[in-house]
């Protein structure tokens, strides 16, 4: 098991290098010299920022050499300085990371806690009213543009009913209220962004856990469990569910790229002070060092999440062997 964990962990490094390389090359095969594109579109950029850019990327040299330079700095978590305000990219990202992690972790939790029961109940009462309603709901959920849903939430629950705050994470008055009240206020601000972020994941995962559960319930060991005289509750929640969870764990890991992608949209819509919005702003301002930094860090988070789900899978399945598993 220890060896397995180490192997999976070491696999993150080449993946990260591969992805940063693709990104780097993509940025460099784009037509035109990045500095001039940037200059043309953003006249605010100072001469020092331009030289900073040249220093980091060494734009006159071949792409591979430039990438090697970038990679060497990357190992010291040095992504250069932002074009916008000259602050180190890494410190900008670090200041935004907690908000993103909070939003992502909450959404992840919500997805799991909502989708799994939906899937289980649909599978157990297959063909019943709940199952049919959920099938239709999930079908619509799949096609629903989540950013539109976010707008509707803002409109109805935010503006019309005034139930939830529609933007930001920590309001100006937060410093004046006590610890618990502040935590409550934070939760209050989380509701809409989490709802919008988790929505697609709930649709996908509830559907997946339904079919996974139906599959497990058709297995012979479930018949054995019933023949033993176990209660139906135990048959479903222990025998069927424990097996159905295995593929679900893998799928949970694979929802992460989608969640992170979503953060670029939803953090922007809800003015959430996280890394996704930083990335979006950086793109809109052609702030390449920040773009590269955000891309690499969010990829790292994704890989870390997939790694953790791999470990959870290995821990949950006694049959796991390293060789037999490929994502």
């Amino acid at each position: 098991m220890g060896k397995y964990i180490l192997k999976r962990l070491l696999l993150i490094i080449p993946m990260l290098i591969g992805i940063s390389f693709i990104l780097f090359v993509v940025m460099h095969i784009a037509p035109g010299d990045p500095t001039s594109v940037k200059y043309g579109l953003n006249p605010d950029i100072s001469e020092s920022a331009r030289s900073n850019f040249n220093k980091i990327y060494g734009l006159d040299r071949p792409v591979l050499v430039q990438y090697a330079t970038w990679l060497r700095r990357f190992f010291f978590l040095d992504f250069g300085d932002s074009f916008m305000d000259g602050r180190p990219v890494i410190s900008k990202i670090m200041s935004r990371l907690p908000a993103t992690l909070l939003l992502q972790a909450s959404s992840f939790l919500v997805i799991f806690c909502v989708a799994l029961p939906i899937g289980i109940i649909s599978a157990v009462r297959r063909g019943g009213l709940f199952d049919r309603t959920m099938t239709v709901a999930v079908f619509i959920g799949y096609a629903l543009p989540a950013f539109w849903l976010a707008l509707l939430l803002i409109f109805f629950l935010g503006f019309k009913l005034q139930l939830f705050p529609v933007s930001g994470m920590v309001p100006w008055y937060a410093v004046y209220i006590g610890g618990f009240a502040r935590a409550g206020d934070l939760l209050w601000h989380l509701v809409l962004p989490v709802f919008a972020t988790a929505f697609g994941g709930v649709a996908a995962l509830s559907r997946y856990s339904r079919s996974s559960m139906i599959e497990a319930m058709g297995q012979n060991y479930v018949l054995t469990a019933r023949a033993k005289g176990l209660s139906e509750r135990r048959v479903i929640l222990v025998h069927a569910l424990r097996n159905a969870l295995l593929p679900i764990i893998t799928i949970m890991g694979l929802t992460l790229p989608g969640l992170i992608s979503g953060s670029f949209i939803f953090e922007t819509i809800f003015a959430w002070p996280g890394m996704g919005r930083l990335g979006y702003e950086a793109i809109m301002n052609y702030d390449y060092p920040v773009v590269m930094g955000v891309a690499v860090i969010s990829t790292f988070l994704t890989l870390l999440g997939i790694f953790l789900s791999d470990i959870a899978y290995a821990a949950a399945d006694p049959r796991i062997r390293y060789e037999t598993r490929r994502t």
Binding site: Q219, N220, Y221, L223, T224, A225, R226, A227, K228, G229, L230, S231, E232, V238, H239, R242, N243, L246, A316, D317, P318, R319
Partner: peptide, 24 residues
């Protein structure tokens, strides 16, 4: 019925490879 199964009448199935729960 539940109390009868396994207790009064027990059954062994044909397929030993799938009849036991793999994760328990």
């Amino acid at each position: 019925l539940r109390d009868m199964r396994g207790n009064a009448i027990a059954m062994v199935f044909q397929e030993p490879f799938t009849a036991l729960n793999p994760v328990i």
